[in-house]
């Protein structure tokens, strides 16, 4: 805000408030849901990576904004990347997270002890990730202002991006990062999905917060 011009300062504050309103979780969740449910393709999850400027004018970074996990359409049980010990570890983490959210008594919940699939686990660990200054697939899409579309496990496995390789290990076959206003929309699928202009358009319509 320019302190010498109060009108500019207040309009800037109003714009910031309007942007914040668009970024609240309620609207993000609805946009992600609309994107997933309206898509012709079978996407397993969608994540909105939100851009923020670091304190003291440091580089911008992308952090967790919101996500929607739909799961796998194909009910054929795929080979898991997890050993029995790893599966036990996943369940333990899920129990702890469940206690954190719902209280200690909820740890007896049967659903928590159900096998944690590879894609569920990949979605969960994504919540702890962030991407600084053009790093990772979401960071590159944001930095270049260009969508990145990787279809096929073989292509994901040779990506120079660790997140893409990690996704492939957890059964993702297609990963897409589409830059939008103040962030990046990432979609992943356990199926091979080739580039679709329809999806790009939907992301631009749903996530172009600046109109």
């Amino acid at each position: 805000p320019n302190p010498a011009d109060p009108s500019k300062s207040s309009s800037s504050a109003a714009a910031t408030a309007a942007t914040a309103q668009f970024f609240n979780q309620e609207t993000l969740q609805k946009r992600l849901l609309a994107l997933m449910e309206g898509a012709q393709e079978s996407w397993t999850y969608a994540i909105f990576w939100q851009s923020s400027v670091a304190d003291y004018g440091g580089p911008s970074q992308l952090g967790w904004g919101d996500g929607y996990y739909k799961g796998e359409e194909n009910k054929v049980k795929r080979k898991t990347a997890a050993s029995p010990a790893e599966q036990e570890n996943r369940k333990k983490v899920l129990r702890e997270l469940n206690s954190l959210i719902s209280g200690p008594q909820s740890s007896a919940d049967d659903a928590v002890d159900e096998e944690v699939t590879d894609t569920e686990w990949f979605f969960l660990i994504s919540m702890a990730q962030s991407f600084v200054n053009g790093s990772g697939l979401p960071g590159q899409a944001s930095y270049s202002s260009s969508p990145i579309w990787i279809a096929g496990a073989d292509r994901l496995s040779v990506s120079h991006c660790e997140r893409a390789r990690q996704a492939q290990i957890f059964g993702i076959e297609t990963m897409v990062c589409i830059p939008s206003s103040n962030g990046v929309v990432e979609l992943g699928s356990t199926e091979v999905i080739f580039q679709s202009s329809d999806l790009m358009t939907k992301v631009r319509v749903l996530f172009n917060f600046n109109g």
């Binding site: 904004g65 919101d66 996500g67 899920l94 919940d109 659903a111 919540m127």
Partner: peptide
């Protein structure tokens, strides 16, 4: 920003709730 941990917590709560529904319906 404190908004990010809050966002993660809300997303996590929603994920666990949906997972519970999926397990119940399977």
């Amino acid at each position: 920003s404190s908004a990010v941990p809050q966002a993660r917590k809300a997303s996590l709560a929603r994920f666990l709730e949906k997972r519970r529904e999926r397990v119940m319906n399977s």
